[in-house]
């Protein structure tokens, strides 16, 4: 464990806490893409298949359980909660995310570290995570204005993978045969996808204005 990875995990945790805060405090999920939340639940469920077979550390197991539980809780809340689900922007959240699942799975079959069930699903979860934010960014683009908590949620969600890139660089130079090129390339793509959002987020923060995304 290094400081970059720990910072990344904490930033990721903060993004989830901000999302939960937004939904429970405002009893509204406006501006949140249910499709992105469903993709993230799938990412965690397929990535942590080794949850009960390989014990890494208490921290690792607890964080995996938190990520799985929180992503499922958000999906269930947005689908079932009678008050929250009324505020879901159903007609704006129309990204065809099934294509993202299909593309990630095909790519995982072609490009993986080892052609085993667990490795293919791990690669699938890595590719899917890089694309999972797309429905959310499209939704924000269409709705134009971004409320603070939603903006902070997306910001922290993007920032965590940037910390992981620093972690991979650090591990590359400190551990002899460390090679996570699948996660690294995918993590770079993921961080770049957030780039335009980061730009407009920084501009709105600098002008202390409400964040507006160009339609």
């Amino acid at each position: 464990m290094n400081i970059f990875r720990f910072a990344g995990d904490m930033t990721h945790l903060i993004s989830i806490l901000v999302l939960l805060l937004k939904i429970y405090a405002t009893k509204s999920c406006s501006g949140i893409s249910l499709k992105t939340q469903e993709l993230y639940a799938l990412v965690f469920l397929t990535r942590y298949l080794d949850l009960f077979t390989d014990f890494i550390s208490v921290y690792n197991t607890i964080m995996k359980l938190v990520f799985i539980a929180s992503s499922l809780a958000v999906v269930c809340c947005m689908r079932m909660h009678r008050v929250v689900r009324r505020s879901y922007d159903k007609d704006l959240d129309t990204f065809r995310h099934y294509f993202l699942i299909l593309a990630s799975f095909v790519l995982a079959l072609l490009v993986n570290e080892k052609f085993t069930f667990q490795e293919i699903f791990w690669a699938f979860s890595i590719y899917l995570e890089a694309l999972a934010i797309l429905p959310q960014l499209v939704l924000l683009q269409r709705s134009g204005n971004v409320d603070n908590l939603t903006g902070q949620y997306v910001f922290f969600l993007g920032a965590y993978r940037a910390f992981y890139i620093l972690n991979w660089i650090y591990r590359y130079f400190t551990e002899q045969h460390f090679s996570r090129w699948i996660a690294c390339v995918s993590g770079l793509v993921q961080t770049v996808l957030y780039a335009d959002f980061f730009y407009y987020y920084f501009i709105s923060w600098k002008n202390n204005a409400k964040m507006q995304l160009p339609a």
Binding site: D50, D54, I56, W122, R180, A183
Partner: peptide, 10 residues
């Protein structure tokens, strides 16, 4: 599984 390909990252 060998420790090398253990996925120790989240």
């Amino acid at each position: 599984t060998e420790p090398s390909d253990l996925k120790d990252e989240l």
